[in-house]
Design a protein around this nucleic acid. Structure first.
Length: 714
DNA sequence: ACCTGATATCCGATC
DNA sequence: GATATCAGGT
């Protein structure tokens, strides 16, 4: 392995974190403070000091983060880091559950339920128990499931949760508890695990089987946990269970970026780390390498209003840059247009994939998607509806699940509902009949639904055949295709492409169970391959944007009831979380930050309604931003400025002289160049009229305008 | 009894 | 866009 010059690439605090290889360490890493870099260099350092990669366990919150770290580590240290174990808590837990499944009494397969599966179970249990029949005030299945899950994650009684978070549902406490018991029984009967189960069952495994625990403690001598502020109580206990007597545990996090309290995350895990692991070394990373000082001044203001625990003072050496803009369109419709105009304007100096539009909830991007489609601008959306959640994928995966776990009733229902004349009830009967060998009933039903026999035979054959993943998928695709064409006559070619992609992904697996696990735990996106798509604007929920960064960030719908969400208004803790979410959103921006505050928004019942700006915007001192307002005649004008230019004619250079190195002209498309932010990079190709494709070490391939690059003499 | 299609109501973020 | 309920068909 090449020698790495740690001192040159790291600041004092980062270096200390990287060089502390033994014992417990807590790294408080402010936004943009080079957290990933620190983790990656520490991995390299560990391996340099002859810790085998496979005894390092890297638990992160999202698979995306894990992949990014491992890729960057490999880049830094050659192939030496291959074999570092890692992933999300959930994925790791499930891996271990399957590995030691027999010890827990799982002889036949188990399936993981995603949210909609679980909701289906809630619905079915509710019907079965006749709870709240015809009662419109009874919470919907989604709400019931959220409450049950929240109770489990916070490890409090359901009634307790109801009292503190949904007082109006207290009259239904009994009904919900009946559903809760039925839900647990249903899962046990059909070999189903929900996301929460993965963590709790894994904990049970470790607690009740000391030999397994010892084995894992020995196997993983060094633990690193990312986004520690987002872990919940079980995850905290899992970390303690997995760490041996030497406690080589590094936790990295930022209490100011904790935004998952709604699913039971607790900052206490960070705050108590030092007492859980005596002798912990606490290291704070405070220098920000991402954003310009004007952006940081605004984000510090957001945080300044909060009740933060670890005092932090972020500073940047990137002094210059445009002030953040607060833009006030007349409505959410013109907001979409204004955002698209801004994207077009920015794209003259910034590659599209380096521009992101962020929002609080998935549906808020809808008008924007329409506007982008109209102009033919490509976009990539994160958060909201997932590939794996679209109907045809779920249909198809249901068949695969049946091959792996024949007790999976939700999968049966999904699969057999494709056949005309079969609904949930008939399906349940069929399921019971196959289980008890009620051939008379089966014969009758097969007569009524001729296709049924064919379907059952196919599934039987596949289950018994012990074929590899690829051929199973192949046969099921042939079977499913006609159903899909019938169900989705308008757009089945697009869906077909999605399925073929699925088959491609699946081809890389040898075990069907692994593939299914990744489908529900890894949320693969279609088309995206495994990285950023070139020349596509990023649309993302703020939660999905966590840990990422872009040159330009536009934040939309900053109005009362939308951000902060109206669900949060009544509880101060939730408001604090919304504020941190706002902080996370704004700190994603490197060079440009635009905050969009429409004067009116469209509401289904009332049409266009005037709305107030979000308190988070109102609280900002006006010195931290410039304000732009849309005139009734269209066009945006700078407030308090004597002779403003129309927005369309303003180019980013007016505001952003930082990066422009006007010395460059048309250049040969080979050799090396420099960029203010990415450093030195190799020029791969020239894209007329004025762009280059450049490979920057540590940052990957970027397409950039020539103005931003300083050519090197070759 | 069960399935299918039409209509009114409600939407938060993730593994 | 999804969910829950109600009416009408087999």
């Amino acid at each position: 392995m090449d020698h790495i010059e740690y001192e040159r690439h790291l600041n004092q605090a980062q270096l200390e974190a990287v060089q502390t290889l033994q014992g417990p360490v807590l790294v408080i890493a402010g936004a943009g403070s080079g957290k990933t870099r620190t983790v990656v260099y520490r991995l390299a350092r560990l391996v340099e000091n002859s810790v085998p990669p496979e005894s390092i366990l890297l638990l992160t919150f999202t698979r995306k983060a894990a992949n990014e770290m491992l890729t960057r580590a490999a880049h830094l240290a050659g192939q030496g880091l291959h074999g570092v174990a890692g992933g999300t808590f959930h994925a790791f837990a499930f891996g271990m559950l399957r590995r030691f499944g027999q010890r827990l009494g799982y002889d036949q397969g188990v399936s993981i339920m995603d949210r909609s599966d679980a909701e289906g179970v809630v619905k079915q249990v509710r019907e079965m128990e006749g709870v709240g029949k015809g009662d419109r005030s009874f919470p919907r299945k989604g709400a019931v499931l959220s409450l049950m899950s929240k109770a489990r994650n916070k490890e409090r009684d359901l009634e307790d949760i109801l009292a503190s978070e949904a007082g109006h549902l207290l009259p239904h406490a009994e009904g919900i508890q009946i559903i809760q018991r039925g839900y647990e029984a249903f899962k046990a009967k059909h070999g189903l695990l929900d996301y929460d189960d993965l963590l709790f069952k894994f904990e049970t495994l470790l607690r009740e089987h000391e030999d397994i625990r010892d084995f894992l403690v020995q196997r993983y001598s060094h633990l690193m946990i990312d986004e520690f502020q987002d872990t919940n109580l079980v995850q905290g206990r899992l970390v303690r269970l997995l760490s041996g007597p030497e406690a080589n545990v590094m936790a990295v996090g930022d209490d100011a970026q904790s935004v998952y309290a709604f699913r039971g995350a607790t900052v206490n895990n960070i705050l108590q780390f030092t007492s859980d692991f005596p002798g912990t070394k606490v290291i704070k990373l405070e220098q920000n390498y991402r954003s310009t000082q004007p952006i940081l001044e605004l984000t510090n203001q957001i945080l300044g209003q909060a009740t933060a625990k670890y005092e932090k003072h972020l500073f940047s050496e990137r002094i210059e840059g445009p002030k953040p803009q607060v833009v006030r369109p007349l409505s959410d419709m013109t907001q979409a247009q204004g955002v698209v105009d801004k994207i077009v304007e920015l794209s003259r100096t910034t590659p599209l994939h380096d521009i992101a539009v962020l929002f609080r909830a998935g549906y808020q991007s809808y008008p924007l998607e329409v506007a982008l489609n109209k102009l033919g601008i490509g976009y990539q959306k994160f958060g909201g509806m997932r590939f794996a959640e679209s109907a045809h994928i779920k249909d198809f995966v249901a068949h695969l699940r049946l091959v792996a776990n024949p007790a999976d009733l939700p999968a049966w229902q999904r699969a057999l509902s494709l056949l005309p004349g079969i609904g949930p009830k008939t399906c349940e009967r069929i399921y019971e009949a196959t289980l008890h060998g009620d051939e008379a009933y089966m014969r009758r039903t097969c007569k009524r639904v001729p296709e049924l026999e064919n379907t059952l035979t196919l599934l039987d054959n596949l289950r018994n055949s012990r074929l590899g993943v690829a051929p199973v998928i192949e046969q099921l695709l042939d079977y499913y295709r006609p159903h899909m064409e019938e169900r989705y006559p308008d757009d089945y070619p697009k869906r077909q492409a999605g399925l073929e992609e699925l088959a491609q992904i699946a081809a890389g697996y040898t075990k069907l169970e692994d593939f299914l696990a990744d489908m529900s735990l890894d949320n693969p996106d279609p088309g995206s391959g495994h990285g950023v798509e070139e020349d596509k604007v990023v649309l993302s929920t703020i939660h999905s944007a966590k840990g990422l960064e872009w040159s330009a960030v536009l934040l939309i719908d900053l109005v009362e009831d939308r951000f902060p969400s109206r669900h949060a208004l009544s509880r101060p803790d939730d408001m604090e979380e919304e504020r941190r979410l706002m902080y996370v959103a704004c700190t994603r921006a490197r060079d440009f930050l635009g905050l969009y505050v429409p004067d009116t928004v469209y509401k289904r019942n009332q049409g266009s309604t005037p709305v107030l700006p979000s308190p988070f915007v109102q609280e900002l001192p006006s010195s931290t931003y410039e304000e732009w307002r849309e005139g009734y005649a269209g066009g945006f004008r700078r407030q308090q400025e004597p002779a403003p230019k129309p927005a369309a004619q303003r180019s980013v250079q007016d505001d952003a002289p930082v990066n422009s190195a006007s010395t460059s002209q048309a250049q040969p498309s080979n050799g090396y160049c420099r960029h203010k932010i990415f450093g030195r990079g190799k020029i791969l190709s020239f894209i007329p009229p004025n762009k280059y494709k450049v490979n920057f070490s540590g940052f990957g391939i970027k397409t950039m305008i020539a103005d931003y690059l300083q050519m090197e003499e070759s």
